[in-house]
Amino acid sequence: MSILHRNKPDFSPEKIYKKRRLSLEKQEARAALVFVLPFFIGFVIFGLAPFFYALYISFMDFNSFKSLDSLKWTGLSNYKAILNDSVAISSYFKSFYYTIIYVPLLTVAGFLAAVLLNKSFYLKAFSRSLFLMPYVANIVAISIVFTMLFDPFGGIVNIVLTKIGVDHPPLWFAGTQTAILTTALVAVWANFPFQMIVYLAALQGVPRDLYEAAEIDGATRWQKLSRITLPMVSPTTFFLVITATIGSFQNFTIFNALTRGGPGIASRVASLNMYEEAFSLNHYSYSAAQAIVLFVIILLISAIQWGGQKKWVHY
């Protein structure tokens, strides 16, 4: 075989087809990159970079407002200080307490509302719109309304409780034992419509023939719910539980609007404590260390939830 012959381009149909396919794949890959790039750039600038910066300053002595040029490495001292800070430690427990109230209530409320709205009834579309209203309401407006409702002095809730014979109605937001619970209830009210919509979509995806077969077998309502509906929507439940858990630790807005951490520090959850440390006391590094600890806690909880899904999530 001559050299000329060996270098002759291959114009066979297979080769041309393969080249075109590769070219198309490349084009698609490039197009995909263009579509993904805006998100990726945003994520790096507003997600990853702040995270790594928080990690970095958590090891520095940025605990008074000073020039960045004068920052010094302090190792784990900010993390060690957390261990001796009773307010910081208690703020993590308060966040956890809020989560274990908020997440189950939110999930149950969202599921029950979805089951109700999945049935056929008069003014169904209008009812669905009404259920969505809390989700679009402004948190400040919500805080004003609920502060008035739960006012221990003349609030409608305590007036009703007094009328029905409750001698010492709760102090709600003003009570050390009730502030977090009451805030969690308001947060459930404000956020359950999202769970409801996602559950509604999941419920509509459950095949009707499963219910018909169960009815033929004489299954009760409860049996249909527990043996068909719940297992069939379990991937949705898992998704909602894990996102609600993560979201429940990001609770600064609602606590700031409703209790500001009070009375005293009874509802000073981790996010509020970090804010106070950073922006009232200028303990930026110390606050960043607390944020990293919270991140690790959320990561661990999410990992446990992820590992536990095998036992109850049916794909």
Binding site: T176, G262, P263, G264, A266, S280
Partner: peptide, 19 residues
């Protein structure tokens, strides 16, 4: 700043009858 905050937070608990 801290001193005033602590006085308000802990004092409040006495004032509302919870400490």
């Amino acid at each position: 700043t801290d001193y005033g905050n602590i006085i308000l937070q802990e004092g409040e608990l006495y004032l509302v009858g919870q400490k």
